[in-house]
Every structure is written in structure tokens, then in C-alpha cells.
Amino acid sequence: MIIGFTLCKHIARWQRDGLIDEATAERLRKDIAGHGVSFGLGNVLAILGAILLGAALLSLIAANWEAMPRLVRVGLIFAVLWCGYLGGAWRASRGDKVFSEALYLIAAIGFGAGIAFVGQMYHLSGDMASAALWWTGGTVIAGLLLRSPTLVSTSIVIAGIYLAASVEPDNTSRLTYVWLVPVFSVMAAGLIWYVKADVARHFLAVLLLVFVCVVHFDLDASTILWLALATGLGLFLADALRSPVLDDLTGWSIGLGAYGFLAAHMVLMIFQFDDHGFGRTREVTIGFAILALAIAGLALSGHRNLAIRWSAYAIFCVEVLYLAFETIGTMIGTAGFFLTVGVLVLLLAVFVIRMERRLQKKSLLKSVAP
């Protein structure tokens, strides 16, 4: 909504300055109205309200759980599920895309709580990871049948809960997450494509980044880091050099390039801080590799991929300051260190300002090119 309002202001200014005529301005306004932002403040508030309402219902049930007969307990769980799923389907059939998703979310929360309550009631054996796995599976099936983007995103979040629970020492099947999470990710990618759950793509990308870190630190495995580095660089370069091809294949070239860029930097930073036995030389060497990759991101994709551009700025500035602290900061006093950092920050500001001008000029030339 905010983006659409800003674009309308720009259209009015272009029309006032004589850059476009009235007919073109009206067509642009109609196009914005027809392709408005579907995930606005109202959606966020509806989802937040659904989470709070679901938590309130579960708290009320849990507080009176022991006083209820078993049949009433099971009936309440099914009532929450059916009211959420059927109510959401009814609202969706009426064209309501906000409160239908909120009702679906309440049902998904109720399903997870139902697993815990039934397990406690009948003293079923199991652990948190197993419960989260069943919760994920049920939510995936519901998302598939109802074609709900919110349920797809929720299933990925629950898969993250499963991943966190899987590394607990008392988990009976600790290492199953090593293959279950990749299998789930492939299924989730297909579900995202089928349901057109655009927001869920970000949740899945974050889940995979967390998965790489968990596998490395839990199993002390460097192989997955090299695999993530190669995959990240491949996605970044594919977006930078062959963006139309990647977009035709996936429909999400900019996002894949940005997450690939972040994955490559994440791996390099893990290599930089993971083992200090090689001394400061290794940290500085990898630090220069991080800076080189950040500059490559600005040079290749900064003019068209804002996520890469601002990520590269942040990584470049933080890494420069870190290298300054590691090399210069240990050799000079406090006053000298602050003086050095102050000068570096000013130089970084000059670098960012000049780079912004160059990238904006390059982006403008690309947009007006025939």
C-alpha cells in the first residue's frame, strides 16, 4: 500500500512536469490498482490477531484441561480444527483473502496443540521433534488441499521448530533432520510454486541457511559449507549474468541471487571465525575475500538488485571495521583507534555515496535503453 501510494505521487509529479500525458498517467494508476500489494498492514494485523486468538483459546483449554472429560477435550480440539479450516474455506469462497488465511492459521495452531494435548492425555511416547514433524506434515497437507499461502509459510516455520528440536541431546532420532529437511525443502518448493506462496519463498531460504549452520556446528562437517558456498556463488552469478534465464526457470531471479549472495558470505564468515588456530593471517585473507565478493556484488548486480546492493554495503562496512580492529586496533591506543575508525567511517561514507551515484546512473541508463 505504501509503495502504491508512493508510485502514485511519482506519477502525479511526472504528469505535472510534462514527462507523461493524462492517458498514460491514468493507465499507470489503473495498473497499480490492479496489481496492488497483497500483503499490507491489514494482512499483518489479521495474522497477528489470529496468532493471539489461537494462543488465547489454547491457554483457556489448557487451564481447564484436567477438569474436562476426555470426550470433551477431543471435541474441543476438533471444534477448533473444523471451525478454522471450514470457516476459512467459507470465507475464501466469498473472496475474502485476509480472514480466510487468519482462520486457517488458527486451525494450524490448534492442530499442533492438539498433538501435544492428545499425547499428554493418552501418555503417548515421543519427543518434541516427532510432534513437530507430525505438525509439519498435517499443515503441509492442509496447505495443499486449501491452496493457502499462509499454511505453506506456517509449515516452513514449524519445520524450523522441528530442526531446532532435532539437535536436542535427548532426541531419540537426532540425525534424521540431515535428510528430512532437504526432502521437505524440495516438497515445500513445489508447494510454493503450486500455491503461488511468494512470501513462503523467503521462509524457505532462511530455513536452508539455518540448516547449513546447524549441520556444520552440530556434526562439525565442513562439506556442507563448501556445498553451500558453491551453490550460493552459482545462484549469485546466475542472477548477475543470466538473470532472464534464471527468471524464466524459477520466476524469482532477484531473490535467488540475493540469498545466494548472503549464503556465500555466511560461509566465508564461518570460515573466518570458526577456527582461530591458523592465526590472524587466515582471518585477514578471508576478510579480503569477503570484501572482494561484496564489491563484485555491487559491480555485477548492485544497479538492479537492491537486496544485494544494501547487503553488500553492510557487509563491506562491517568487514572493513573488523579488519581495522584486528590489525590496527591492537597496535595503537584507544584515542588512535577511535581516530582511525572515524576516518574509515568517513571514507566508507564517501565510497557509498559515490557508488550510489554510479549505480543509480547505470540503472537509469538500463531503463531508458531500447
Rank of each mutant, 00 (worst) to 15 (best):
I2W: 12
R13D: 09
D17Q: 08
G18H: 13
L19P: 06
D21R: 03
R29W: 02
I32F: 09
A33D: 12
V37I: 03
L41W: 07
L41P: 09
L45K: 09
L45C: 06
L53G: 09
L60A: 06
A63F: 15
A63K: 15
V74N: 10
G75R: 10
W82F: 09
G84L: 08
R91Y: 15
F117S: 01
M121N: 06
L124M: 04
S125K: 08
G138T: 07
V140I: 13
I141Q: 05
V152H: 06
I158P: 15
L175W: 14
P182L: 03
V183D: 13
V186Q: 10
A188F: 12
V199K: 12
L208K: 03
I224P: 04
L235S: 01
F236T: 02
V245G: 01
L249I: 04
T250C: 02
G255N: 13
Y259D: 05
F261W: 11
H265L: 02
F271I: 00
D274I: 00
E283N: 07
I286R: 08
A289C: 08
L293R: 06
A296E: 08
A312D: 12
A314Q: 11
I315R: 05
V318S: 06
Y322L: 03
G333E: 14
A335M: 12
G336F: 11
F338W: 13
L344D: 07
A349K: 10
V350H: 14
R357W: 01
L359P: 10
K362N: 05
S367N: 10
